[in-house]
Deep mutational scan, measured.
Amino acid sequence: SIVTKIISIVQERQNMDDGAPVKTRDIADAAGLSIYQVRLYLEQLHDVGVLEKVNAGKGVPGLWRLL
């Protein structure tokens, strides 16, 4: 499923980069989806406690990390 793919992308990127959070844009590119589509999935995963959003604010790139 797309959700499983997104989780594995975040996991893979974090492992490659010493646990650093992953940008929404990088996840979207790797999943082959638009940034808006991916954001909806990321928000859902956040709501159920799978991911945390590391930063927030208007015009700030979203950074995500697995919990």
Rank of each mutant, 00 (worst) to 15 (best):
Q11P: 00
V50D: 06
W64A: 00
Y41Q: 02
V48S: 11
I6Y: 01
K5Q: 09
G59C: 08
N55T: 09
V3S: 07
L45M: 06
H46F: 09
Q44E: 09
P21M: 05
Q14M: 14
L40W: 14
L51A: 01
A31L: 13
V22Q: 05
V60S: 14
T4Q: 14
D29M: 13
I6V: 03
R39H: 07
G62M: 14
I9S: 03
V38M: 06
L67R: 13
I35P: 05
T24G: 03
G49E: 02
V3L: 15
Q11S: 10
G57T: 07
A31R: 01
Q37F: 11
L63M: 13
G49F: 03
G62C: 15
V50S: 02
P61R: 11
G49D: 02
E12Q: 10
E43W: 10
L51P: 03
K23C: 09
I27M: 01
R65E: 03
G19P: 04
Q44I: 14
K53R: 10
S8V: 06
L67E: 04
K5I: 08
D18N: 15
S1W: 13
L33P: 00
Y36G: 10
L45E: 00
Q11I: 11
T4E: 12
L66E: 02
K5S: 05
G32D: 14
D17L: 15
M16G: 08
T24P: 03
G32R: 06
I27Y: 10
V54S: 03
G19H: 06
L33E: 02
K53L: 08
L33W: 03
S1V: 09
R13M: 11
V50A: 04
L42E: 00
E12M: 13
A28H: 15
I7P: 01
Q14D: 03
R13W: 06
D17Y: 15
D26M: 05
D29W: 08
G59S: 09
K53Q: 06
D17G: 15
T4K: 14
A30S: 07
V22K: 02
S34V: 09
E12H: 12
A20L: 08
S34N: 08
G49S: 02
E52P: 01
S34P: 12
D47A: 15
P21K: 04
R39C: 11
V50T: 05
I35G: 03
I35D: 05
I7T: 03
E43S: 06
A31G: 02
K5F: 09
K5R: 13
N55W: 12
Q11Y: 13
I27A: 00
E52N: 03
D26A: 10
L45V: 02
I7N: 00
V60A: 13
W64R: 01
R65M: 07
T4I: 13
G19M: 06
L33M: 13
T4W: 14
V10H: 00
G32P: 01
D29G: 07
R13Y: 11
V38S: 03
L66N: 01
R13I: 12
T4C: 15
V10L: 15
Y36P: 11
S1R: 12
L63F: 08
A28L: 02
G57Q: 07
A31P: 01
L51W: 02
D47R: 15
K23T: 11
P61D: 15
T4M: 13
I35F: 08
L42Q: 00
D17R: 14
V50L: 10
E52T: 06
A56P: 11
T24K: 02
R25T: 10
S34H: 06
I6K: 00
V50P: 03
L33R: 02
Y41M: 08
I6L: 09
S1T: 10
